[in-house]
Amino acid sequence: MSRTEEIKGFQVIPVTLSASRYFKTEEPIKHYMYAKKHQSNTDKEIAERSIFLINPPINASLSTIRVFFKKISPESLIENFLLNIENLDYDINLTKLTSDLYDDEEINTGLRLPSGSSLVVFVDKSAANLALSKLKKYSRSKDLYEWNSKSEEPASVRFIKKFKSEILPLEETSEFVSKELQEFENRELESK
């Protein structure tokens, strides 16, 4: 059976998913990621050591991505995994729209990942290149990686923890607020 290996310049990366007892299928279920070398004009340094990855599995995180690449390209060390699922429009910035204390550059720095996409940031350019060539090889192979889509922690505990994480620590928040307000004051002074 022929398999699509590349689609519009993206490497197609199939993985199999761990079975669920509530949804049984004869063959393992496949999930597809799509990867290519990252290109960016705003942050060239990061761009050249990153792989642009779309449609990562639902529980993709720095740790699950590390485990995956450890299998594919053990030598490529991963520094970070950035994922955007916020469905936000980067062109809307309330701060900038309500104040003239900021210039465009300040606002436009940073990564602008399209919603639903992610960036696997490696420690250096060669690690990234190696990983990409390994991915190409992988996408042709028959042995598919089994992505662990089950989490170690029971979901009920995990979701409650999310509520807990919304509570802000008082001291840190207090310090953060005063620092930010100090910066704002400085800005105002500068602009006068």
Binding site: L17, F23, T25, I29, K30, H31, S149, P154, A155, S156
Partner: peptide, 21 residues
């Protein structure tokens, strides 16, 4: 749409809360 993967992932993501599908 990858329906099967979607079902599987949601079920795994919802973990111990699930009792049927």
């Amino acid at each position: 749409i990858n329906r099967e993967a979607i079902f599987n992932e949601i079920l795994n993501y919802a973990g111990d809360l699930v009792t049927g599908f």
